[in-house]
Design a protein around this nucleic acid. Sequence first.
DNA 1: CGAGTTTTTGAAGGACATCAACGTCTGTGG
DNA 2: CCACAGACGTTGATGTCCTTCAAAAACTCG
Lengths: 227, 227
Amino acid sequence: MQAFTATSASRIPAALAMRGVSALPRGADEAQHAARQRFARGEEVFAEGDAGTYFYKVVSGTVRTGKLLADGRRQIDAFHLAGDVFGLESGDRHRFTAEAVDEVVVIAYRRSRFASLVHDDPAFGEQLMAAMLTNLDRAHDHMVLLGRKSALEKMASFLLDMARRHPGADKVVLPMQRTDIADHLGLTIETVSRTLTQMVRDGLIRLAEAGRTIVLADKAGLQLLDA
Amino acid sequence: MQAFTATSASRIPAALAMRGVSALPRGADEAQHAARQRFARGEEVFAEGDAGTYFYKVVSGTVRTGKLLADGRRQIDAFHLAGDVFGLESGDRHRFTAEAVDEVVVIAYRRSRFASLVHDDPAFGEQLMAAMLTNLDRAHDHMVLLGRKSALEKMASFLLDMARRHPGADKVVLPMQRTDIADHLGLTIETVSRTLTQMVRDGLIRLAEAGRTIVLADKAGLQLLDA
DNA sequence: CGAGTTTTTGAAGGACATCAACGTCTGTGG
DNA sequence: CCACAGACGTTGATGTCCTTCAAAAACTCG
């Protein structure tokens, strides 16, 4: 596991790949300078080092953002679900990679229009600011997880977080595979797998659909682990 | 080491402690609604859960921000040096704690004045936005460190980062003690200490002044470790 | 100088990684 | 619809990096 890109996906820089822009009726979010884009499982939205021409808001599906070290080690800093904003950064180049975890639709906004966008639509500006601050909050929480939690606690926190962010009952349908979870939690896939089976043994969760669906059987028990 | 607060420091919520506001002539940064505050070593600027009335910019000294788990485990997400902005968050309450590592002077800005501040002084708004994005970038880098680097790599990255952010030659005068470094890097103080002595043995660094000053003897060697 | 704090060093243990093999699922073509 | 290949996930055995527990050394400040 050394590439950030998924196995069969081709590398298509987002800035060049404007195909996939739909002609759907535009909602309030989609003012001028915003374009809807579609990405298949494993496709790259942008890569570390790419020009940060656009930033994005997820319409549907899941996007992973993260960094890749020279020797192949990977850290996924966040999964972005519907409504989340990603790709807004300080420099003029992207400092991390963004890829589609499953079938994804995003709205791309030109960063150069950031100021005018905010000026024309202050509410949108507020929303963006809030989205960035949410990202920062999440980053802080995730640093605690990475630096100070055990594998069991990491897994419990992750599952509860996914359950909270997803609609639906105490059942999480994970869009990502074990490798992604491992690289998000700072673990190996083996430890992720072992931790999940231990949780099943302890009656905390139940697995279904090839381990992709996780029923939170004992939410209170999990919350006890979510330090 | 179970409290976030340092040993002999009293807990003084910043919002109440407006003593220490100086009458110094104000620079460009210090518009109305901005107040200079001073904190002694270990003093609390604000605590997790406090009303997020103010956000801050460091004038001099070093501030640590981070979180404390119920059982005493601590994660310091960042050290803020002169010029850095901290305490700007999404909710109306602070989600983490901020404390003075050494003698610190900050400028406190009312968050409620954020909009008008930005309106009256667009350059200041730009600066703030940039500061936040810098914080986010740093958070991303730190997640890679916490999730995927070895103790040696963590220490090398930390030292190079401190050297880069501090003025001066290849010599870092660390304002914080080992406990803070450990809680920043997701290690124990013993591992921090052992890693430093190993670096000395390997000729990468030299220690001086009770281990508080670190000379980067082999910067290239350290950069090799900074994956 | 001496008490308390901070740092270093040592010995032993444990949580997670690594290496390896097997099981299971998915999608495609016969 | 079934068979098969490749991808994905689980399980097992062993190793190692870092933690934990313990104590001594060095530093700080009255």
